[in-house]
């Protein structure tokens, strides 16, 4: 077996993950809280106002990172879904179980902050354009995965059904991303892309970038913590979990 294959199969072992992941949790949490603190204070307190929108544009410091994560987490769930269906890896199934509610929460934050910004800027809380509608669909896909897992009593069947929905739903992600380019939407196109200079000065995008990384790190900490709980719950009968609990208490 090649080095990657060995790593891949080890990754699938819940115990291996549990033994290794505690420092990751601490690291992600520290980085996430620090960066979010710095980026939020900078963005809300020190970045200049916008020439047209004034201070209301500052909601991007929450809206953009949460919307970005909402899409990225779904793609991650789709990849995990393939691993569940093909390799029947328990850890990938746990990842979907833990990620779906977190993804639903960040999508909810993106929708809510978007509505709050839309009211003064566009003149409407909600508009049915391609971007807003496809993000609403993303929210319901997350909700569907959470509900599907609850509705099917047998764990392996629930896992496989959720994996199929995770894979199928990834089709929505490029639609969200390119909706503002493919169709006429009220939502503006992306201000920051990998291919062009940002459509805002550094005094505005640097705090945004900091918050972006901070949001990712904080959510990573949530996911690691959730996965550790899930491993303990599902392996509760295993000897190593009993040993660990004894040592911990």
């Amino acid at each position: 077996m090649g080095r990657f294959t060995t790593w891949f199969h080890r990754m699938g072992s819940p115990r291996w993950f549990f033994d290794l992941s505690r420092p990751w949790l601490v690291g992600f949490l520290a980085v996430g809280v620090t960066l979010l603190g710095v980026g939020t204070v900078w963005g809300l307190g020190f970045a200049p106002p916008d020439y047209q929108q004034g201070d209301s544009y500052r909601i991007i410091y929450i809206h953009v990172p949460s919307a970005h994560l909402a899409e990225a987490l779904y793609v991650a769930m789709g990849v995990a879904g393939i691993v569940v269906l093909v390799w029947r890896m328990k850890l990938a199934d746990m990842f979907i179980a833990v990620t779906a509610p977190v993804g639903m929460a960040v999508t909810g934050i993106a929708l809510l902050t978007g509505a709050i910004w839309g009211r003064p800027t566009w003149g409407a809380w909600w508009v049915w354009d391609a971007r807003t509608t496809s993000v609403l669909v993303l929210f319901f896909l997350y909700l569907g995965i959470v509900a599907l897992r609850q509705a099917i009593p047998r764990a392996d069947q629930a896992g496989r059904a959720a994996a199929v929905l995770a894979i199928v739903g990834t089709v929505n992600v490029p639609i969200i991303k390119y909706s503002v380019d493919w169709w006429l939407t009220l939502h503006q196109p992306a201000s920051i892309t990998f291919t062009a200079a940002p459509a805002m000065p550094p005094s505005m995008w640097v705090p945004l970038l900091i918050n972006m990384v901070g949001f990712y790190a904080l959510v990573a900490a949530f996911l690691v913590a959730g996965l550790r709980n899930e491993v303990l719950l599902r392996e509760a009968d295993a000897q190593w979990v009993r040993d660990w609990l004894e040592r911990a208490s």
């Binding site: 916008d50 508009v127 201000s191 459509a199 505005m204």
Partner: peptide, 18 residues
């Protein structure tokens, strides 16, 4: 019966806009 403003992707501080 309804007018909505479409914002573009450009953001800048007021001094630079001036």
């Amino acid at each position: 019966h309804e007018v909505l403003a479409k914002h573009d992707e450009n953001y800048m501080p007021p001094e630079i806009a001036d």
